[in-house]
Design a protein around this nucleic acid. Sequence first.
RNA 1: UGGGGGAUCGUCCAGUCGGUAGGACAUCAGACUUUGGAUCUGAGAACCCAGGUUCGAGUCCUGGUCCCCCAGCCA
Length: 567
Amino acid sequence: MTIPGPPSLDFIRTIVAQDVKAGKHGGRVMTRFPPEPNGYLHIGHAKSMCLNFGIAQETPGGLCNLRYDDTNPTKENVEYVESIQADVRWLGFDWGQRLFHASDYFEQLYEYAVVLIKKWRAYVDGSTAEEIRQNRGTLVAPGTESPHRNRSMEENLDLFTRMRAGEFPDGAYVLRAKIDMASPNLNMRDPTLYRIRRVPHYRTGDRWCIYPTYDFAHPLSDSLEGVTHSLCTLEFEDHRPLYDWMLDGCEARCHSRQIEFARLNLSYTVMSKRKLLELVEEGHVTGWDDPRLPTLMGLRRRGYTPEAIRNFCDHIGVAKRDGVVEMALLEHFIREDLNRRAPRVMAVLRPLRVVIENYPEGQVEDLEAVNNPEDPGMGTRKVPFSRVVYIEREDFREIPPKKFFRLAPGQEVRLRYAYIIQCVGLVKDEQTGEVVEVRCTYDPETRSGSSQASRKVKGTLHWVSAAKAIEAEVRLYDYLFIKPNPGEDKEGGGYRAFLNPRSLEILPSCQVEPSLAGAAPGSRYQFERQGYFCVDSVDSSGSRLVFNRTVALRDTWAKVEKTQQGG
RNA sequence: UGGGGGAUCGUCCAGUCGGUAGGACAUCAGACUUUGGAUCUGAGAACCCAGGUUCGAGUCCUGGUCCCCCAGCCA
């Protein structure tokens, strides 16, 4: 009913647009993507990147910085730094010359701390961590002030100088903001600004032994860079008063506005760095790039494209209510992208031998197959056909259920791009009773593309020539968890109980068409009637092809059959 | 019993000044099909609850309910 007008802006873009219009910050817009280099990026970070870099791109003159929030040397390292940059680039974002680190600002941050001390807004506290915790009070009871809270300014300055000089062991002192121990917002109860950590930092080495906390470093880093809109997730809402307090207290020249949005949750997976780390370290997955993980490197190895991930992020929207986005939506976007660009190819995952009795022994025909019906520009290729072919085991049933449009005794079916064949017999293993071979005849008049090829049959099967096919390993992935929200009910490690024991199925001897020989690592294909697959970038080699299933094709028949069985 | 946030189809996101609640995914049905794919058509499906104001409330007011976050020298 409503005329489709311009797409409505999300609440953050609305604020940014208003600020630009009002001439705030001179109409300038600057955002930042601030990962901590203590883990690998996942699709939740992709949402943040699409937001931050997206807003910058949409705004004339807008900029987005890449800034490492590297204020905790005990958890961070260069390995993460490099991987993060690779992931950001892969997703398609460019920080230009604006690669920054909170650690770039350590000296300036220190000066700001001195300013706070001189304004009686910060003090050095010799309380132990335990004492500080005790004195913080509770959610309902106010805290009590530290006995060191009213030290003289000179003493504070002296102590802080000596903290920096390395005169004290870890934990001996901290610098605290002097705000309000009775504040209902616990973040305002004299939060810690600096702590002593006598460990080398991956960038500043041993130049520092005191390190600023997030609450101190983040707002000031934003200010130093001139960030106008500091976007973060919901759990920082309580920190906003502190963010503003810091900027006011330090009389920072640029006062960025912090705006919080809901982080991304995806069904059937987990997103927290801690859980991801545990899955890797406990060996539930093979590594950070395991194709079952929602990490960017996992998704990349799985065969996801940056375009699909960006489209996904653009469509999930940005809001403040937290929820769980269905994995089906992510799958929709990768199918949409790959349907358009992935060349089609035939591959038989679970081979069943088919002998075409009336086809000349030793004869091979090169049949023409289109590479992508969605894009004629992608051309055609030749696929060899011969007397013995493999078809998918599940494409044959000795006793076919209703509406089974595939091969069964007496039934006809078309072999894609080839001939119509009819099943005239089958061979069973005498021991197991398993069908090991299907005997067929073909109708020479029905060759694909010939003038008499128009005869209709209910089903079309993919196949591969037994003589010409090459062997490959195929890895089928399913959801990592069997529950839509594995992290939900039980706190702590409960999610592990919901790991899907069948999240990976390895098919070591699949048969794929010969055009796949030498397929480049990372290249993506549609295996007709099955799904999208990519050549594994780690384990595939010239002598052994390994494919990962990115996502299966939609399978209407599977649904029909399921409801038939389910009654 | 404190503070900060949030509640709209199954899911995610819209909804202007108060004026027939919309899109995407998912689901179901049909068309088409040499991929049971893709595509096309159609359908079902929601305003947390209770009052109030109003000709008219998702929107405004009052009172409830439920959910999330916060007691790191993590971010």
